[in-house]
């Protein structure tokens, strides 16, 4: 009886705490949301607006009216779907290979991958590789060079490490080779992890910006973030080492509402994907499938 009471208090306290954290998180976001629907002139009057006097969709209308918005959202969508799937296949294949302790050369390969996290050669050498492969100006230049990273491989390996080898043996007896084990047992077992990594990859591809500027010359193939960053970046801080030069140019200063609308518009697609992945984080997904 006594423990039940303390547990109740614990759960109540937990709920309160999480609600508080959510509120702290939500307030600035609420602000972003509200400003995106505020008349520019009302925003100019200043202060933090909690509730605009008039709601307007003018910023959203402008965004949708730009020539590139729809096309770049499609480009980003392509990157996020095709890219995420390819990344998951390539990364999980390698991570699974590295998680099998019997493998010859496992430690060396792992170490070599670790080194790629620590040492990065920089923008120009990367550009030259992409260029040598003839990928410049192709949308694949935004997917293939970003397929994986040492960080993801090693972390995913960590997830696979905890899968007992005994499961494999059973499958081997059933006549599966390693590719089959990976596909039929390991991947379904790691559904929560795959959902999490899928989300990471998807967000990474969705946020593609800098490599698109460098590798893609044709604006028709640009992802959404180039349009967005152009609205968000502070023109007085960008563009060249000597600020005075930029200060003297007549600049394009998008109103605050438009910036915020751009944020809302680019965040929503990811939020829509989220519930589909969320259910896989549920407790016990793994054991459920083991028992079958």
């Amino acid at each position: 009886m006594k423990r039940r009471a303390s547990e109740k208090i614990y759960y109540a306290a937990n709920t309160c705490l999480l609600s508080l954290i959510s509120l702290i998180t939500l307030f600035p976001l609420y602000y972003v949301f509200v400003v995106s629907f505020t008349e520019p002139s009302e925003f100019i009057r200043g202060g933090v607006i909690l509730f605009p006097r008039t709601w307007t969709t003018i910023s959203y209308e402008y965004l949708l009216s730009t020539r590139t918005f729809i096309r770049s959202i499609l480009n980003s969508g392509f990157l996020a779907t095709v890219g995420t799937l390819s990344s998951l296949i390539v990364t999980s294949g390698l991570a699974y290979m590295l998680s099998r302790k019997r493998l010859v050369g496992r430690r060396v390969i792992t170490l070599l991958i670790l080194l790629t996290i620590l040492f990065s050669p920089g923008m120009i050498p990367n550009y030259l590789v992409v260029r040598e492969l003839g990928l410049i100006n192709q949308i694949w230049a935004l997917i293939i060079p970003a397929l994986s990273s040492g960080w993801y491989v090693l972390l995913m390996k960590g997830f696979f490490d905890s899968i007992p080898e005994s499961l494999e043996e059973a499958a081997t007896i059933d006549g599966c080779n390693d590719v089959g084990i990976w596909l039929r047992i390991i991947l379904p077992l790691s559904l929560p992890a795959m959902a999490a990594f899928g989300l990471f990859f998807a967000v990474g591809y969705w946020n593609t910006y800098f490599s698109a500027v460098l590798y893609i010359n044709n604006p028709a193939k640009w992802p959404l973030q180039i349009l967005l960053q152009n609205l968000l970046v502070d023109p007085y801080m960008a563009g060249g080492s000597e600020g005075a030069y930029v200060g003297s140019e007549q600049l394009n200063l998008p109103p605050e509402g438009l910036k915020m609308a751009a944020i809302v518009m680019t965040t929503i697609p990811i939020l829509l994907v989220y519930p589909f992945l969320q259910k896989h984080f549920a407790k016990g997904a793994m054991v459920g499938s083991v028992k079958e």
Partner: peptide, 29 residues
């Protein structure tokens, strides 16, 4: 090739490194 001004210097640098230079390059500074 139009490139956003915020990252224009980097774009010029990789273009120079790549070797196939356009006929005209704008340099802001």
């Amino acid at each position: 090739t139009w490139s956003p001004v915020a990252t224009y210097e980097e774009k010029v640098n990789v273009t120079l490194a790549g070797g196939d230079l356009p006929d005209l390059i704008t340099v802001l500074n």
